[in-house]
Nucleic acid binder design. Structure first.
Lengths: 196, 196
DNA sequence: TGAATTTTGGTGCAATCGCTCCAGAATTAC
DNA sequence: GTAATTCTGGAGCGATTGCACCAAAATTCA
């Protein structure tokens, strides 16, 4: 009973992800977004509501396509401790390939927008908590499987792993090399137990 | 042979530090700065050259008054491994008191401006490297003093400590509680050897 | 086909951006 | 005192910001 949308919402959303990811929230203008998404300003407001509302959708899409996809894939194909190892190794590899050092949209947002917008802050925190839950789940399973020492505190180690991941993301953003990123992570992986 | 400056440059610089610190580089306008510094726009440009040039001065002042002061004070009053412990403990304490979660200006800048401005990026990296040098120096001394296990790789551990510090700063920015920040740090401190 | 509804590109608004210019005030050298 | 020099507040530059509005285009239901 109305005119059909001419653009593909998912494709447009992907373009918006790239836009916010490489420029940050504040530095990205609605005109940048519209141009990159291949739509007019009116369509953007009509379809997504505005800059902030679009960013909420972007965070959700990023979490789905980047974080959750990786977690599901690695958790399905690896033993618990190896899933964590592979997760961090993959982040290192991607960070090194990431020429313009975009880093992780969630981490960037945690420092950029979260402190100035309580709502977005809660969203970012929830996504980071999903990553920690992945760590925690697999540390527990690794202990159960005998891969990780019995006395290990899974809760504490999962927090440590999240912190190490955040730190690596920050240093990667400054252009750190592989040996630096690996040195950040290695002691945390040692706590998981020596890989077979 | 000319009119004297009416404002105190150091006081104005401190105000500029607070401004950039709490709002970030992009989100801080020259008008914000001038108002908070208690000077006119023309004076700001006359004395500091512009927004970016002022930010360079701000980074330097922050490094002097925050990072370097802390390093010098703790290094003078503690045994090597205790200096590192006290450094991280102090960061945790200040992060928890920091109601508006400003975090660390250097870390915020590492994610905000460094990737989009090579010059500022190098400056930020250099300041972070000073912190790592503090870690490295004291890990080596701690090994020498028998506080830290002999086999420890001081270079690698100093990088790990820097990464853990960055990670803690990110999580603190999202409003993390004490037990979270301490869980991030504790495994790294364990590598320093048990405190006497 | 005509009414209803939504999307579309374009235009434009009020506000703000970093920055510049200017006239006047203040200070020192002469 | 006079000339020279610098600092000061204020006004204003062109550009850009997020967003609103509009008429035309497109589509479905009647």
């Amino acid at each position: 009973m109305a005119r059909l949308r001419e653009f593909d919402e998912d494709r447009a959303l992907d373009a918006a992800v790239d836009c916010f990811w490489s420029r940050g929230y504040e530095a990205t203008s609605v005109r940048d977004l519209a141009r990159e998404m291949g739509i007019g300003g009116a369509s953007l407001y009509n379809a997504f509501g505005g800059k902030r509302a679009l960013f909420v959708r972007v965070l959700e899409r990023y979490a789905n396509r980047s974080t959750r996809e990786r977690i599901a894939r690695l958790e399905a194909g690896h033993r618990p401790s190896e899933a964590i190892r592979a997760f961090l190794a993959e982040v290192i590899d991607r960070s090194l390939k990431d020429r313009d050092c975009k880093g992780c949209l969630l981490v960037n947002s945690a420092l950029d927008v979260a402190p100035h917008d309580a709502g977005l802050g809660r969203a970012v925190t929830a996504y980071l908590e999903e990553i920690r839950a992945f760590f925690r789940r697999n540390v527990e399973a690794a202990i159960e499987a005998g891969e990780t020492p019995r006395g290990t505190d899974a809760e504490a180690l999962s927090i440590h792993l999240l912190g190490v991941l955040m730190g690596m993301r920050v240093l990667a953003r400054t252009g750190a090399r592989r040996h630096t990123l690996e040195a950040v992570v290695r002691p945390a992986l040692d706590l998981l137990g020596s890989p077979q």
